[in-house]
Amino acid sequence: MTALTRNELLKMLLKKKMLLILFFLLIFVSLFSYGQQYAYERNLEQFEAETGEELPDWRDLADRRLDDLESRRANESIPENVRTSFDREIQQLTYFIENDINPITPTAFSFNTEFAEQGIVLFIPLLVIILAADLVSGEFSNRTVKILLTRAVPRWKILLSKFLALFMMTTILVFLVAVLSTLVSFLFFGEWGINEPVLTGFTLSEGTLMSDSTILISRWRYTILIYSLVWFVSIVIASITLMVSVLVDSSSSAIGILMAALIGGQFLQFFLADWELVQYFFVTNLDLPRYLTGSFQPVEGMTLTFSILTLAVWAVLSLIIGFVQFSRRDVLV
């Protein structure tokens, strides 16, 4: 099994797909960072032009807020849990003041999560699809499947080795997205922002979004959280792609089918949000980070757990179908 997986990984490396993907990624990340930097500067200029003054010094505002919080914190009658929440905000503010960072300046670590949040529904799945679409269908279209399947190895092992190699490459791909978006955007923004505090942890309780249980964590941890979700989504997409790759004969039709599903799914989500079945479609559930940021949900009542379960079911079913079909399929090329 190790040897088989090693083979498959070697094939993926030799096809130089990863280089193509990294090239795409580099272009997109650069464009995005440039765009953000540009918009930020334009806004500052505009503000100065309109009001004829510099931006109100954020440090004054923050200092005032800090005093306010501290005086209230000193009040003995407030409950303990409220006090800790004051502490949390004080901590967040103090951080920005001490490090002399305006909370609204773009940083490399806020960019990488934003890039992931934006990319998770289309761009990152697309990269995974490019990586995975020809894994099986490619072997059929250049007929090498014949030398692969006439060895003394059961077919399920061959597919499993492909899945494992894909799993590893996808994992590394997600990591590379994080690394590249951080490094490239650092070139633009010149700020890491690695320890800035972020608010997260909104819970959905009985159908409504609760902001009470939020927690404060540092940027880099938040980045790990977001990319963990990206990773999960990517693995699910990889599994679905693998199934499609088994079912069709050419990698271009595999890519076509999956792109249609991704884009069509987005449309479905907007136009048929009331239709209950939409929430069981995998595309509708891709945007996992929105549950961490506590933002708007496309279909009422969806939760992180729901989305994760739905995606997991899709992945498992895809793998089952893929394995069954791969084992049964007649090779007539």
Partner: peptide, 8 residues
């Protein structure tokens, strides 16, 4: 990092 469910 201190974190807690607050706001009750």
């Amino acid at each position: 990092m201190p974190e807690e469910a607050i706001g009750e």
